[in-house]
Design a protein around this nucleic acid. Structure first.
Length: 514
RNA sequence: GCCGCUAUCGUCUAUCGGUUAGGACAGAGGAUUUUCAAUCCUCUAGGCGGGGUUCGACUCCCCGUAGCGGCACCA
């Protein structure tokens, strides 16, 4: 009966913030590590203005990609539905009115203008902006008269004066206390009949038997309101765990989209794989106990489920440092088999290529257009021959930080005009005539080989280097530039074998003709 | 302005009063190497300030300072 039920409650704004993904990961871990624990997904769509068509689908897309899956929710079903708050309108209304009847809430007819003016005055007087309680003292007749007259109203909660409200917060590890007089008489039911966040969470968490929820620490100030609401409803308040905020890399403010793309889908598109994102995000504001910690900080989901301890969540906010994500990504990509990597690349390509709700919101950027061109080229090339693609991926796997790097390693293979780093060649062979001669002989030596094996051509190159008294490395560099176009390339041996004799011949052809 | 939370290398963090303050990322150097990586060694770098408590404080308490969050008919 008292089994753990954790909820995650996103708003369908079209995308998930990477920090929200962390919150949901923690929710997921807590649900998974509990015996018979359940993770509930509830869509908080009461702010109609911010809800976006297709928002739920894109939410699921990102969470599925990360492997954070709910047991109950709008897609999964369950006995506590509906899981869309807009479909629960009547329920909230019922509880709001119940609170009015019981004297814990009241109708407020104040206009937006009056409220704005009030706020302005309070601001000028340098006092805390709050509702002044004008409508609290309205007589019953007055209220009925105004309702009858069709005046719109909201329902506000009552807040007792000067009462100490305490909440034992498990992350902070102590009782946080508030003076009720600092708490506003929050609107519970908006004039459009929909609940505000405060009413909705409380009612839903109560009705859905939620026992735990993780949320950002920006919700700490709303604790007293919720304590009061649970009291009015006569319900047990779940354990709310407040995770520290994720700050911008400069430490100024919550990680925000203004300082770069912060949606999970953006990270996916940039070529981060789920293991890396999970590993990284789990360690923002959390660390395993020293007894079970790994020295290299590499953790997979199974480890996290087993060892996640909410008590070890940090209290202080941390910055979002992409370098560490990159490093994790490189490690996790390195751990995949070439076949797995192949599948990841294709899945990634899909996410890049497919239009997403975010693209409708902010438009398809030039950057994305460019990426799409590259990705579709890459995809086309890789899917032509899977076995060969896997061999190619295998040779660059240890040097891929993000999946996007793969394009740069291989584009020479299909691009007609991939170019050459002539400067690097010239730096080793400054004399033009000699350069031409050496390149000619290099080509000749390779063409004369009976078969295209590294065991054969490698000594041939070395011999030629000796003939011209060149450092072996320098001649290999020249060959590298001719074959791959660049001074920095995948390992030449493997690359040349995979690219094939014809390809190398063509590259020589192009190089000499320019 | 008011309320709340927080404070250890550049960054993320470990430490539940006694440690040469440990690790990871980044950075530097080296080994290896036909490039770049990867890998393996080595190094640099830290307890916000001031008071207490204590034989002893990064750790506990208070004050200060700073940062962050909140103060909506947004969540």
């Amino acid at each position: 009966m008292s089994s753990v039920r954790v909820r995650m409650a996103p708003s369908p704004t079209g995308w998930i913030h990477i920090g929200t993904a962390r919150t949901f990961l923690f929710d997921y871990l807590m649900a998974k590590q509990a015996e018979n624990g359940k993770l509930v997904m509830r869509i908080e769509d009461t702010d109609v203005k911010r809800s976006v068509k297709g928002g739920v689908e894109s939410l699921y897309q990102s969470l599925d990609f990360l492997g954070i899956t709910a047991d109950e929710g709008p897609r999964e079903g369950g006995e506590f539905g509906p899981y869309f708050q807009t479909q629960r309108e009547e329920i909230y209304k019922e509880y709001a009115l119940k609170m009015v009847e019981e004297g814990n809430a009241y109708r407020c007819f104040c206009s937006a203008e009056r409220l704005a003016q009030l706020k302005e005055e309070q601001k000028m007087m340098k006092i805390r902006p709050h509702y002044d309680g004008l409508c609290k003292t309205l007589s019953q007749e007055e209220i009925e008269k105004r309702i009858a007259a069709g005046e719109s109203y909201v329902v506000r909660m009552k807040v007792p004066e000067n009462e100490t409200i305490e909440y034992e917060e498990p992350v902070i590890g102590k009782k946080i206390s508030f003076n009720s007089s600092d708490t506003n008489e929050q609107v519970l039911l908006k004039s459009d009949g929909l609940p505000t966040y405060h009413l909705a969470v409380v009612v839903d968490d109560m009705l859905m038997n939620i026992t735990h929820a993780v949320r950002g620490s920006e919700y700490i100030p709303s604790i007293p309101k919720q304590v009061l609401l649970y009291r009015y409803l006569g319900a047990q308040m779940p354990t709310y765990l407040h995770v520290p905020l994720v700050l911008n890399p400069d430490g100024k403010g919550k990680l925000s989209k203004r300082k770069g793309n912060v949606a999970v889908i953006d990270f996916i598109r940039k070529g981060y794989i789920k293991e890396a994102i999970i590993n990284f995000v789990a360690l923002i504001g959390w660390n395993p106990a020293p007894e079970v910690a790994h020295k290299d900080e590499i953790y997979d989901v199974d480890y996290l489920i087993k060892n996640f301890d909410p008590k070890r969540i940090k209290k202080s906010a941390g910055r979002f440092e992409v370098e560490k994500l990159d490093s994790f990504n490189a490690v996790w990509i390195g751990k995949l088999t070439p076949s797995q990597l192949y599948d990841r690349v294709l899945a990634w390509a899909e996410v890049v290529l497919q239009n997403n709700v975010v693209d409708e919101i902010r438009g398809v950027t030039e950057e994305l257009e460019e990426m799409r061109t590259k990705v579709s080229e890459l995809k086309q090339y890789l899917t032509a021959d899977r076995a060969r693609a896997e061999s190619l991926l295998a040779i660059v796997q240890q040097r891929v930080k993000r999946l996007t790097d793969i394009y740069d390693w291989f584009s020479v293979l299909w691009q007609e005009d991939a170019g050459f780093d002539h400067e690097s060649v010239a730096s080793v062979l400054p004399d033009v005539e000699k350069r031409t001669e050496i390149v000619y002989n290099l080509r000749d030596a390779l063409e004369k080989l009976p078969t295209w094996e590294q065991e054969l051509w490698e000594p041939a190159v070395r011999a030629l280097a000796d003939r011209y008294n060149l450092k072996h490395g320098d001649l290999f560099m020249v060959l590298r530039v001719i074959v791959t176009g660049k001074k920095i390339s995948p390992p030449l041996r493997e690359f040349m074998v995979l690219a094939g004799r014809d390809f190398v011949g063509q590259r020589f052809e192009q190089f000499s003709s320019k």
